[in-house]
Design a protein around this nucleic acid. Structure first.
Length: 382
DNA sequence: ACTATGTCGATGCTTCTCTG
DNA sequence: CAGAGAAGCATCGACATAGT
């Protein structure tokens, strides 16, 4: 690794990558100030350090021959509970209750528990560090102002659907959301979110929040939001925007993956309220859930050009979400895409047609070089 | 100049109905 | 059953107005 950090060259590199001179300067100076040799991986290495610390702390966790958890497991459990303290609804994980019959799996269960507890402690530690260092989303996932970003894990899931506008949104209770990767499990409680509006609003709010230290509230007006979304400035859209924000707030997402571990209950927006409603000084106040950051950490997110992206139809947008989250997008089945869109379309022919149109649209937008349907597969060349 | 709200005709999408 | 056209509805965008 390079021992001497060339700030100037790094700054130029950032500008070349599409950042404004100002942003590049900010990132470069922060990199020097905080982590001379860590550059973009500041959070990644924080995670590594935290892992090392937890490894040290939990040496005695090597599977004890007792069914009763050790003090260390207890402590990790407590940490896990604390970590979920901010979550709206907290349920304590009761997995691992053992019967004498299954003594053989007891060790495995315990190992699993220990691993889960360690991950929870790790998450808690990382969150604490983010707080102490007053990091913002921009420190973890810097993207230029002309772009927006989305965690790969949500991009490949059916969290945002493209269902018919005339069908009322479903109220989901702890429902398992389809995900392209089998190792990612998302459960969702809240009103169904649509790619048409909720997805865009969420991305725009993250944009407003990106420079504010995580955990601090941010504010903006409906006017700004509608303008940035490309929506008409009228009462109807203000209502629509507010409904989106309310929906995003009233969510509880359970998230489990090999990479992230287990997030008990993440809200897409931790808090949302309208300040001075009805007055000219009225502003929306939003607080981002700290745990969302974990989904962005370690470069597991996708950046895209906002001007083009926001104009896409919901189906084309979902398609782009998927393709953009892969460096080398490999083809995927029409049916997989249908599930990812949460579409109810039962007629294969009709769906193929719709997907074909989305491919055309995507190609026309210039976001991808080429996209096409062949047999039952959707292909893309970025 | 900027922000906020409303009105109204135009537009486009989905579903329904009719016809061959 | 497929395709064309009509009806209903949501959304869009231009414009007006008003307060700061």
């Amino acid at each position: 690794m390079n021992r001497t950090f060339d700030r100037k060259a790094y700054r130029q590199e950032l500008i070349d990558a599409g950042f404004s001179a100002e942003d590049a300067e900010t990132i470069a100076s922060r990199t020097v100030m905080r982590a001379p040799r860590e550059t973009f991986q500041s959070v990644g290495s924080m995670v590594q350090q935290a892992t090392a610390k937890i490894e040290r702390d939990s040496v005695q966790l090597a599977p004890p021959a007792l069914p009763a958890p050790s003090a260390a497991v207890e402590r990790s459990r407590r940490l896990e509970q604390e970590a979920a303290g901010l979550a709206k609804s907290m349920t304590i994980d009761t997995r691992g209750t053992m019967t004498t019959k299954k003594r053989k799996t007891a060790g495995e269960d315990l190992a699993k528990q220990v691993s889960e507890a360690k991950q929870a402690a790790l998450l808690k530690h990382t969150k604490q560090q983010i707080k102490e260092m007053q990091l913002s989303l921009f420190d973890i996932a810097p993207w230029p102002d002309t772009m927006r970003a989305m965690p790969n894990d949500t991009a490949r899931s059916a969290l945002f659907t493209t269902r018919n506008k005339k069908i009322p949104r479903e109220a989901l209770q702890n429902k398992v959301i389809f995900h392209v990767n089998k190792d990612v499990k998302i459960t969702y409680t809240g009103v169904e979110l649509r790619a048409d509006d909720d997805e865009l609003v969420w991305q725009q709010v993250l944009e407003y929040a990106k420079r504010t230290p995580i955990g601090e509230p941010i504010t903006f007006t409906f006017y700004e939001l509608c303008q940035d979304l490309g929506w008409s400035i009228n009462g109807r859209y203000y209502t629509k925007a507010e409904e989106c924000l309310s929906r995003l707030q009233a969510t509880a997402m359970g998230f489990t993956s090999d990479r992230v571990g287990h997030l008990e209950s993440v809200s897409l927006l931790h808090r949302f309220r309208v300040l001075d409603r009805g007055k000219k000084t009225s502003r929306c106040q939003v607080l981002i859930d700290e745990e969302i950051v974990v989904l962005f950490a370690g470069d597991h997110y996708t950046k895209f050009i906002w001007e083009k992206y926001r104009k896409l139809s919901p189906t084309a947008r979902r398609m782009f979400d998927y393709f953009s989250s892969h460096r080398e997008p490999y083809p995927f089945k029409l049916e997989t895409f249908r599930l990812m869109c949460g579409s109810d379309s039962t007629r294969v022919k009709k769906w193929r047609e719709q997907v074909g149109e989305a491919c055309e649209e995507l190609r026309g937008s210039g976001l991808v070089e080429h996209a096409w349907v062949n047999d039952d597969l959707v292909h893309c060349k970025r």
